[in-house]
Amino acid sequence: MTDVALETRNLGKRYRKLWALKDFSVSLPANKVIALVGANGAGKSTLMSIAAGILPATEGDVRVAGRVVLLSQDKPLYRSFSVTDMLNFGRHMNTVWDQQRALDWLGRFAIPLDRPCGKLSGGQQTQVAMAVALGARPSLLLLDEPLANLDPVARREVTGELLAEVAENDMTVVLSTHVVAELAGVGDHLLLLREGRSTLDGDVDELLSQHARLVGPRADSPPVEGQIVQSGHTERQSTFVVRTLLGPETPMPAQWQAQPLTLEDLVLAYLKAAASGVREL
């Protein structure tokens, strides 16, 4: 359980003058679903491309255990290839290939095998790209915004099937997204990126149990010890999002309430804090 799927040390990537990743060190656990969250341009795609080995890092190291497959944002397929051809492509271009797994995936979503990929709907194309990715039997599957062009029903279905694949195989999935609301119950592990750095990194349940929204009478600081993630004040009331050991279970003085956060609340609190932090600077 403590195996590491992806480890980076002081990883950096510079595009001309701009650092897309800087001094980036994380260690992501194996056989988990890792939610990679961040605003556009935070470095999610860059991190995935480097991990997949298709983009050289400017500095630092990245170590990956086993086979890596990246499914990039625009789900590239050869438009003139039939679905069967795409599977043949996967079979011919990889040293390891599981045709049955790919066919099973396509079968679950009733994708016609003989149709050219260019004539499939956006959602169907995503399924073909997923099938090719899964057929390569990755131990680390990097999915860059995989659900972007799916309708809500299909999103749920794909997420479910994908999670089942994780449960049944030795596979770690890194899922980048900016639709945080859909991550509840999906990700085991959260990695929050901001401007090329890791802002928050940990087990989702642990993180949620360590954070709380404290609401009480107007005050300059929260009534308990802890890292203040976000604070807001009205004339009479103060709200703090804090990180403390006990989170929502923290004993509160009178007039104060500690409320648990949803995953979305948590992510938004960190992202907003980051944004306001920039303004202060």
Partner: peptide, 15 residues
């Protein structure tokens, strides 16, 4: 089964 819940609710197997 765990798989059924995972696919129908789209939640993690660990959950």
């Amino acid at each position: 089964t765990v798989r059924e819940v995972v696919t129908s609710c789209a939640v993690n197997a660990a959950t």
